[in-house]
Design a protein around this nucleic acid. Structure first.
Lengths: 250, 250
DNA sequence: TCCGAAAACCGGCCTGACCAATTGCATTCA
DNA sequence: TGAATGCAATTGGTCAGGCCGGTTTTCGGA
């Protein structure tokens, strides 16, 4: 048993364990959870703590509490609770290529001169950010969201923003991106500048093409980074085998 | 005082009130909430209840609790808590036109014969659904999500699904769509069939065009429905004025 | 003026208790 | 025999009070 990686409060620990039991299929939708008093015994915590944990589940819509009856499973925890789960960096980037391309096309017909100026500034910020060691992706994110915002469509903006949040939540994705970014500073800046230039012409097709080109390049970087990773892994494996059989051969 | 519309538990009532105070701008991000003991006095509840309410806010990411220090505002309740809030039916449909068009293009290069067969069936379901009085949009939703799924990209599928959920959450949107749908049964079925036909050719550009054409038509329906609504509203207003001034004139 | 220790404050968690809603079972009546 | 009724056990709802350990503030000494 991984007895409670601490640092959280007890109720969070309990809530996580209960969520795990839900995810494990131990309970079906509609089933009743054990009573609060019973849970407090089986999990060795007080009833108030059990209540807090159940409330945490309730707020997330996982269970429904009926007075005098019990807590019932309303839905099972799924990918909604783990945004980005099961999504690879490639899928995410492909989705961004498709959707941000359209967002850029929309922005081309709506963007103001002031917003174009802000994008110019953001391109410079990206350049600075990429040269700094261990730089963040703050400016990069701001750049893409500014374009999405320029389309003047809340649904579009929310969608693009959600994709970026997804990216932050996916550890695999973040790692790959960081790796890919370090090697290719100049191209990234040029691509972003090209997007701004296309937007400045107010040509939707050109803006779409520039954005897609940029993200297609990102996709390439990712591929490259993955290959390197795969090669390194393969090399390690071969070395291990070599060592293992060294005794046999000698 | 709106003394507690009951039926919920106390903690929910308190949590709602606290959320209201956050929304009212009384606290800024980073501010500290009153201490638990203080809240229990000012709101006339026990400390456990206050704790439960604060946990409800914490689970939603609204506040962050620091041991020995207090509960701090992490973000203000906004559109994140009411998905679809502030998004008009037009924005949503425009976003769908852009994004589902791309999803259809992706699907064209990935879809299997079996999936094409399922789409054929769904087109028939949509026809049946639209003829039934007060029919739902179940088949319509299933049709569009099936196409999104056929692209074999989880991020893309999740995005399209999120847009459909948004649609369900927006009352204004649902109303308008219901109104628009009743008047135009045949075209809708034909448009869906055309999308399947385009997918069957495996031509991304054709699939994109068919999907965009369909949603552009939906946009037109919406416009029409809105105009009718606006005209009716204007007529009511004129009538009201007429009645108001009838006494003056007579 | 600066620093460190004590005190005040704050959340974390527990015990024990009582109330109200629900539910299941046994009793009772038709 | 079957349905209606009433009671008791179970369950969540809430409270009071208390102790602990971490954080912040304060105040006196260096």
């Amino acid at each position: 048993m991984n007895e409670t990686q601490n640092q959280d409060r007890l109720y969070q620990d309990l809530a996580r364990r209960l969520m795990g039991e839900l995810a494990s299929g131990r309970y079906a939708v509609g089933d009743r959870l054990p009573a609060e008093r019973e849970l407090s015994l089986t999990h060795a915590v007080s009833r108030p703590t059990v209540r807090e944990a159940i409330i945490a589940l309730e707020v997330q819509g996982l269970v429904e509490v009926r007075v005098g009856s019990g807590a019932y499973v309303r839905r099972l925890p799924g990918r909604d609770d783990i945004p980005g789960f099961g999504i690879t960096a490639f899928e995410l980037t492909e989705a961004r290529m498709m959707f941000e391309g359209e967002a850029a096309a929309l922005a081309a017909s709506q963007i103001s001169d002031e917003e174009l100026g802000q994008l110019d500034q953001l391109v410079q910020d990206i350049a600075a950010e990429n040269q700094a060691p261990g730089g963040s992706e703050q400016a990069d994110r701001a750049f893409h969201l500014a374009i999405a915002r320029a389309g003047r469509n809340t649904a579009v903006f929310n969608t693009i923003e959600a994709l970026w949040n997804l990216r932050a939540n996916s550890p695999e994705s973040a790692l790959l991106h960081a790796k890919a970014r370090t090697a290719n500073v100049k191209p990234v800046v040029e691509e972003h500048a090209a997007i701004v230039a296309a937007l400045r012409t107010r040509d939707p097709a050109a803006a779409r093409a520039a954005m897609r080109a940029h993200l297609a390049a990102v996709l390439d970087y990712l591929l490259f980074a993955t290959e390197e990773q795969a090669i390194a892994a393969a090399r390690r494996e071969i070395d291990a085998k070599r060592r293992r059989y060294a005794g046999t051969a000698g």
